[in-house]
Design a protein around this nucleic acid. Structure first.
Length: 416
RNA sequence: GUGACCGUAGCUCAGGUGGUCAGAGCGCCGGGUUGUGGCCCCGGAGGUCGUGGGUUCAAAUCCCACCGGUCACCCCA
């Protein structure tokens, strides 16, 4: 048997209804916050991700689905959405259309990692990106949007963690200082952190090993290095979050895995997700557009992991579709009578199904029951003779006789 | 890439120390109701016991390898 590729999952009926529900929910909020939808390709030139995410990140080094196209050009299945959106914004000059450009997208991302709870190789995100605003209020607005979507989906016990990574003005000094600290304490660190010391010292702070965390109790803090601008920016973001009524926890060790973040970074964590407890994450990426060859326009955004969202969402129980009407036509003649009616009702958005296998009435009603039909319409020889059809209420079992000439009108009245 | 655990019908799972152990529940199909679903009763279909090798008189059961799944590490949504 041919099975789906590891880490790639079918989303089956029963699940798809939940997806559609959450997508609709997210769309309503994106709309309410003034975001327009953009859809970019799933495949991009590899260079785009290498330049935006960062050459030395795990994503680029070992997690991308990269291959040579037939013309020998290296292409990659997008591991995240921001890079592609930035590319499109630059390519089409979208930044010229409005001072502040608000975009959202939803769709699959691909990362070649070992699957586990809340982690697939093809996974899905809801993404929001704002271009053209340096204002801290925009950071807060974007965070509020993410929180609103998650809360509307019934996610409980959300924990918003926030930090500022500084900017190109102040971060290098911190990075160097931290590196010195790590070198001094190298003998107490795990192998991973020793490696991070030279490659990406900030990431060491994120290490989950208690022995390392014990060392980092005394590590230098980024806030001690923030420049005046970064300090003011962060304070203002927090103030606006407070005004929006959002609780947060400052986490000076919060470091993201993508190089393009500056200043504000945040993660929204939830209970019940196992080891991968971040449902949403994002931050500010002011230099990214310029780095990709565009104008020097700032950006802020976030991604919600849809699979993880589903794990913590509290959804309505009645998402599975119900059939309005099941038509049980007994015999060829009855079926001929009923086909035009079925089509007509369907064209009025009334959901109707019928049996094409010529099965017994009993079997047909059984199907009607399984499809959770509200009504069944029974038309057999007896009814044909009398020029009527029987409308059976599948809840109560009550049946009434309706003349064929009135049938369509009656059904529309009851079912629309 | 590393580790732990797991792999029996469509689904959820039983099957002490190898010898009617190929089963149950749910689902599906049919019958009980010559034209009436849901509840109940009866019957039926459906399985290379993940794959391949080995030990043995005998393996779903023990051993090895491989494949697949789950969770965790790394990292991240």
């Amino acid at each position: 048997m041919i099975k789906a590729v590891r880490g790639f999952k079918d989303i089956l009926p029963g699940e798809t209804e939940k997806w559609v529900y959450l997508e609709g929910l997210a769309r309503r909020f994106f709309n309410a916050y003034g975001f327009r939808e953009i859809r970019t390709p799933i495949l991009e030139k590899t260079e785009l991700f290498a330049r935006s995410i960062g050459e030395a990140t795990d994503i680029v080094e070992k997690e991308m689905y990269t291959f040579l196209d037939r013309n020998k050009e290296s292409v990659t299945l997008r591991p995240e959405a921001t890079a592609g959106i930035c590319r499109a914004v630059i390519e089409h000059g979208l930044y010229a259309k409005a001072k502040v450009l608000k975009l959202f997208t939803m769709g699959p991302m691909f990362r070649h990692e070992r699957p586990q709870k809340g982690r697939l190789r093809q996974f899905h995100q809801f993404n929001a990106e704002v271009f053209g605003s340096h204002a801290p209020g925009t950071d807060a607005e974007v965070i509020a949007l993410a929180m609103d979507i998650l809360q509307a989906g019934g996610a409980k016990d959300l924990r918003l963690e926030i930090n500022s990574l500084g900017c190109p003005e102040c971060r290098p000094a911190f990075r160097e200082n931290l590196r010195q600290f790590l070198r001094k304490n190298a003998d107490k660190l795990c192998e991973d952190c020793k490696r991070r010391t030279e490659r990406n010292p900030l990431r060491a702070l994120d290490c989950k090993k208690e022995t390392c965390q014990a060392v980092y109790e005394n590590a230098p803090l980024i806030e001690e290095f923030w420049c005046e601008e970064c300090r003011k920016h962060f304070a203002k973001v927090l103030e606006e979050l407070g005004l929006l009524g959002l609780e947060f926890v400052k986490n000076p060790r919060l470091v993201r895995g993508l190089d393009y973040y500056v200043r504000t970074t945040f993660e929204i964590k939830a209970q019940g997700l196992g080891a991968q407890d971040t449902v949403a994450a994002g931050g500010r990426y002011d230099g990214l557009l310029k780095a990709l060859g565009g104008p020097d326009i700032p950006g802020v955004g976030f991604a919600i992991g849809v699979e993880r969202f589903l794990l913590v969402a509290d959804l309505p129980a009645n998402l599975e579709p119900r059939l309005d009407l099941f038509v049980a036509a007994l015999g060829e003649e009855a079926k001929k009578q009923v086909l035009p009616l079925v089509r007509s009702l369907r064209n009025k958005s009334i959901s109707v199904d019928l049996d094409h296998e010529g099965r017994s009435l009993k079997a047909q009603l059984k199907v009607a029951n399984r499809l959770k039909a509200r009504y069944a319409l029974i038309l057999g020889e007896n009814e044909l003779k009398e020029g009527v059809a029987l409308l059976r209420d599948m809840e109560t079992g009550e049946q009434e006789s309706i003349s064929l000439s009135e049938l369509e009108k009656e059904l529309i009245k009851r079912l629309s």
